[in-house]
Amino acid sequence: MSSGDSYLSKRAGGMLIAPLFVLLLVFFVYPLLLTVWQSVYENGFTTRPYEELLTSTLFAKVLRTTFDISFTATMVSLFVGYPVALHLSRQPPGRRVFYLMLVMLPFWTSILVKSFALTVLLGHAGIVNQILGYLSGDTLHVTMVFNRFGAIVGMINYLLPFMILSILGSLLAQDPNLARAAQVMGAGAFRIFRKITLPLSMPGVIGGVIINFTLSIGMYITPALLGGRKDMMVANLVDFYTRQTLDWPLAAAIAVVLLVISGVLVALLGRVRGGSGTMGAMA
């Protein structure tokens, strides 16, 4: 009897996700396959785009820049996000919900809007520079946009919620009695953090780092709007080949390379999560 029930519910479940499945098939899987196809087919099967990529100094440079920027942004996001997550984990649940909303606020705002807002804040005549100018008697002006700094600030703004949620998840999953037990045994706050809280939050840290890095290497709008001319990211290179040189196979090949890197990272993430089993709740 129960097997009949579960069969029915499986069927019903299958029908409920069918529209989404079709949607993904048409607008996600099909274009993806098309991209892969385009990267290996020009009037016949070819490996030309990949060979070009292997030898292209531009691609190597852009890939390098992308990794550099992504790594920096991820690390800053980690060091800014960890204390925030730690603070959140120690709040009473009611207040934590409120703080979490503040954390999520940029997450719910369009990237475009955020990027323009940041130009207003950090630009040459922006609020920060006005204050700096006022304080220094008009001698100090720092260029904070249209360079790597700007790109990274913009990216972090987007990345932080992912980092904080991931870390918070593994902080909240910890048994509060562990810290209490350590306290009774004589351990001070710093030792408890270093020996218990921090190591037990590592799945969240690693998860957050992988998510952030994966998101970073594919970023397009933020670095385009806030970054410098010289700091081209891989996604912008794809744009360059599709619109400037019209070399679509090459652009497709770059997209495929990016996809493979992201795929590997996401697979890694799955392992971290599967292994710890503590994170699902939050992130």
């Binding site: 009695n177 209490r180 037990a181 306290q183 009774v184 045994m185 004589g186 351990a187 001070g188």
Partner: peptide, 10 residues
Amino acid sequence: TNKRGLGMVF
């Protein structure tokens, strides 16, 4: 707590 020199079992 950590200065009280106690032991505790949970």
